[in-house]
Design a protein around this nucleic acid. Structure first.
Length: 883
RNA sequence: GGGCAGUUAGCUCAGCUGGAAGAGCAUUUCCCUUACAAGGAAGAGGUCGCGGGUUCAAAUCCUGCACUGCCCACCA
């Protein structure tokens, strides 16, 4: 088998991503003998294309799925896309604009047709990209939030909630985006600080010279004021409560009300109350039975105001009103003021709170159930710190405005009975899958459907049940087997928008939370810590990274940075380092395969024959345990680091290097012996790495085991403790000797290729045994030609000294040594040892420490002191000897 | 206003059930030692944001404070 010197990701990736799909490696069937492990993908917007955030999210889920599969679970990861409501409609509207038309020119039906057509053309891009990065999704189960089955689920959920009386229609104050032309829910509004002014306006008392000054950021809505409110415990205004004021510019009479929400220390302590255009004012109005006057309509134009302001935009009206107030001497002063302004999360247009007839979902009970599920640890956040904000949000949730005045989406399945002429009758509206045949109250047979569509998040909230066919059969076998899902992986930006609502709907319709674990990962940021976004121009396209470094590198770099709940800064260096790791894996495999040439089939059972064998087996067991524990708690970053360290530092730098002694031995049985361990460890490492780096590991695995199952379908072997733990300590001794010699050589500038002799003055008999048994290791890795062991060995003037634990090591360096340099080096060493003696002595002479510290700790410190003292003694002797 | 997270080597970050400070990248020296120069060996570089406290012992636990970031809030 020929392997290229440098790992070439392109061919390998193409081969495997196609293989997994063609062979349905990740297609899941119900198997009652196996435990299911289920994930539903957060459905990306159909119009989207893969960005780093998706790549991270998908990689993490894929890692978990592949890992669980190796553990023997019947895993299922369901793919799909979201129709994306307003966002998607906006994209198509922009396309139309380029053609010089609007959606109204087309009309609803034609426009929707146009949208579907466009989605057919562009819609699969994101799924194709998920295939590209190797996602082990079940491609037989691709779902779309607006396909037939999902549409049924939406209708079913709506009708159910409607019939339970939880969905109702009403005229309420809502967040209105005049650009998108629709109402939005509370969480679809994003708040931003904006420089503005605080206008202080005089409101005169009726039939009096007295007045109240109010401070406001929205002078134009003054025309819709129906009261001025003050704090109940504000002495300044106590005598004015209940009195009548004359509204400036209009002369309309309004009352002075008192309400607890008013903060007497803010502004003037008096608030103008505009119930139709401010949420807080709306609450005040309810508590005080105030009238509601709408002065801004859904197009952002003034209505119900004196003629001169009628039809003006909010901005123009503000200018006019301020000018007029100033002229009429109502305006007292204008302050600079920063306050936060709500903006549409899809188009950033300023949100206008206004009264509008909308559908609402009463979420009170559902929220309680979701809170309980979190409190009873039926749903668990990773990291845990997200639970609190999640619960707080649910507890303070107001009814959800679920209707949108756009065309793209699930049309609300409510029908109104109308007369022959199309006039709506007084009959009760009917929620139904189909257009009703007959009105139950008037027997009429003519109906019109509600014009609005549902918030796109309504269908997203049903995702974990709708993907299993809940809309068609709420007792489907899939639901019974795969629901609730095992874990939901998502960034924190959609915890409220999506995660919380899935919990509510899952508990409502299935009596069970839709997922057990919630794995919250961070957001990918650029090198400078800025969030990646198209508009900032700092977005890194994962496809470029794949092109440059390979998919496994992309995945490994993301995995390594994925500390639960923390945002990550990622740059080219991260991918480069991951790419180097992939190459390291490739070359380790190449070394082994090279040596396997001409070797007959190795035994399955491994027979460790020497220290390094036992040691690497003990190490792989440790790594396995650590990685498994980290996988189970979604510490993918820890997994990656653990595996990196094991593979590179332990396996490559030590074990493979030591194995070369047997590889180059003329005795083929020795070579076979070492190879069997090399292959065994490589296979274990490949399996552990395969969830993170599926391509390269699949390829090597296949080259290694031509006839076996592919790695993705392999299962972890039951690893029982080998009992080689004591080899770790012995290996440490050997490594210490090797490192000490290498350091000495390096500091004395001895070329790494020159073979030299070594004298070991033994200070510890046990360690002598270990060193003697493994003399070959020391010779091989420290480039030593021969070792002479002994006691009280005299050093020669031409030698350098290293004190390892258990030995004085002399390297006779005839003609190579510079005595002065050696003395300086030893002086430095001795200084270090002296500091150690001071530290440890201080501890040991501390009575409290001796009395209270555990025995093992005291012994440890004592041992350190002994080592250091011995070192000083030996170096001292040496120095004296050198003169 | 409330909540959450962060502050550790030049940079990006681990370590935080308390017992001698770690990795990658960058950097210095040596090495093209046939798996890998996308590599190997060795080194330099840190009073772990600041102040208190608990403890024999604190990067790690508690408590203030500062700064940074994020989220929530009826900031007129």
């Amino acid at each position: 088998m020929d392997m290229e010197k440098v790992y070439n990701s392109k061919e390998v990736e193409k081969k495997w991503s196609e293989y997994w799909i063609e062979n349905k490696t990740f297609s899941a069937k119900i198997d009652k003998n196996k435990k299911p492990f289920t994930i539903v993908i957060p459905p990306a917007n159909v119009t989207g294309s893969l960005h780093m955030g998706h790549a991270l999210n998908a990689t993490l889920q894929d890692i978990v799925i592949r890992f669980k599969k190796l553990q023997g679970y019947n895993t299922l990861w369901v793919p799909g896309t979201d129709h994306g409501g307003i966002a998607t409609q906006n994209v198509v509207e922009k396309l139309l604009k380029k053609e010089g038309i609007t959606k109204y020119d087309l009309g609803r039906d034609k426009f929707l047709e146009r949208m579907r057509q466009w989605i057919n053309e562009a819609g699969d891009a994101i799924l194709e990209q998920l295939k590209m990065i190797g996602c082990g999704l079940d491609w037989d189960r691709v779902a779309f939030t607006m396909d037939e089955s999902r549409s049924k689920a939406v209708k079913k959920a709506f009708i159910d909630l409607f019939d339970k009386g939880l969905i109702y229609k009403g005229k309420r104050l809502v967040n209105w985006c005049s650009r998108c032309g629709t109402a939005l829910s509370d969480i679809e509004v994003e708040y931003d600080d904006e420089k503005s002014n605080l206008w202080h306006i005089k409101y005169p008392l009726k039939d009096s010279d007295e007045y109240i000054i109010v401070a406001t950021t929205r002078p134009e809505t003054l025309l819709g004021d129906t009261a001025v409110a003050v704090s109940p415990d504000d002495d300044r205004y106590a005598n004015l409560v209940g009195k009548t004021l004359k509204l400036p510019l209009s002369g309309r009479e309004i009352k002075v009300a008192s309400d607890y929400i008013v903060d007497k220390s803010f502004g003037t302590g008096a608030v103008k109350v505009t119930p139709a255009h401010d949420a807080a004012d709306n609450e005040i109005a309810k508590r005080n039975n105030l009238e509601t006057i709408e002065v801004v309509d859904i197009n952002g134009k003034m209505i119900n105001v004196p003629e001169k302001y009628l039809g003006l935009s909010v901005e123009d009206a503000r200018k006019e009103v301020v000018k007029d107030l100033e002229e009429a001497e109502f305006l007292i002063k204008v302050e600079d003021y920063n306050h936060s302004v709500g903006r549409c999360y899809r188009c950033s247009t300023k949100i206008e709170p206004l009264m509008s007839e909308q559908w609402f979902l009463n979420v009170g009970e559902m929220s309680k159930k979701a809170v309980d599920a979190a409190n009873e640890a039926k749903t668990v956040f990773h990291p845990h710190s997200w639970k609190k904000p999640y619960v707080l949000w649910l507890e303070n949730l107001r009814d959800w405005c679920i209707s949108r005045q756009i065309w793209w989406g699930h049309r609300i399945p409510v029908y109104y009975c109308v007369s022959e002429k199309g006039k709506r009758k007084d009959c009760k509206p009917i929620a139904s899958f189909e257009r009703p045949k007959e009105c139950p109250c008037c027997k009429g047979d003519k109906f019109v459907q509600d014009e609005d569509v549902l918030d796109t998040w309504f269908s997203s909230a049903l995702w974990p049940i709708s993907v299993f066919g809940w809309g068609e059969n709420e007792n489907s076998e899939d639901l019974k087997y795969f629901y609730p899902t095992s874990v939901l992986a998502t960034g924190h930006e959609i915890i409220y928008l999506w995660v919380a609502r899935m919990a509510q709907f899952g508990l409502e319709f299935m009596k069970d939370a839709p997922y057990k674990d919630i794995f919250i990962h961070g957001i990918v940021r650029d090198k400078r810590g800025k969030k990646m976004s198209k508009s900032l121009g700092n977005a890194v396209d994962p496809r470029d990274i794949i092109e440059k470094y390979g998919t496994d590198s992309l995945r490994f770099a993301l995995a390594q940075a994925a500390v639960p709940g923390r945002d990550m800064q990622i740059s080219d260096e991260s991918f480069l380092s991951a790419r180097n790791f992939a190459n390291k894996i490739w070359n380790a495999a190449r070394f082994i395969l090279m040596n396997l040439e001409g070797i007959d089939k190795l035994d399955e059972e491994i027979k460790p024959c020497e220290l390094a064998d036992e040691w690497i087996i003990a190490e792989v067991e440790n790594t396995f345990a650590k990685a498994q524990a980290a996988y189970d708690t979604y510490n993918i970053d820890a997994v990656s680091r653990e595996l990196y360290d094991f593979f590179w530092t332990k396996y490559c730098d030590w074990y493979i290097e030591l194995s070369k002694i047997r590889m180059t031995s003329p005795d083929v049985s020795l070579k076979r012996q070492a190879l069997s361990i090399l292959v065994y460890i490589l296979k274990r490492a490949l399996q552990l790495l395969s969830p993170v780096m599926p391509f390269i590991t699949s390829e090597i695995w296949q080259i290694l085991n031509k006839d076996e199952k592919i790695i993705a379908e392999s299962v972890f072997p039951k690893i029982k403790t080998s009992g080689f733990a004591e080899s770790l300590e012995k290996m440490r001794t050997v490594q210490d000797i090797i490192i000490k010699i290498r350091t000495l050589r390096s500091e004395m500038n001895i070329s790494p290729v020159v073979q030299i002799e070594a004298l070991f003055n033994v200070l510890d008999d046990n360690k002598e045994k270990t060193a003697k048994e493994n003399e070959g290791y020391i010779k091989q890795l420290a480039k030593i030609s021969s070792i002479q062991f002994g006691k009280n060995i005299e050093r020669s003037k031409n030698s350098a000294l290293a004190v390892a634990s258990g030995f004085e090591i002399f390297l006779p360096l005839e003609g190579l040594i510079d005595i002065e340099k050696e003395k300086a080096r030893l002086a430095k060493e001795i200084a270090l040892a002296k500091r150690e003696v001071e530290r440890t002595t201080a501890k040991l002479s501390n009575e409290s420490f001796m009395k209270r510290a555990p025995k093992a700790e005291v012994e440890k410190i004592q041992a350190r002191l002994n080592d250091a003292a011995l070192k000083i003694e030996k170096i001292d002797e040496s120095l004296k000897f050198l003169g």
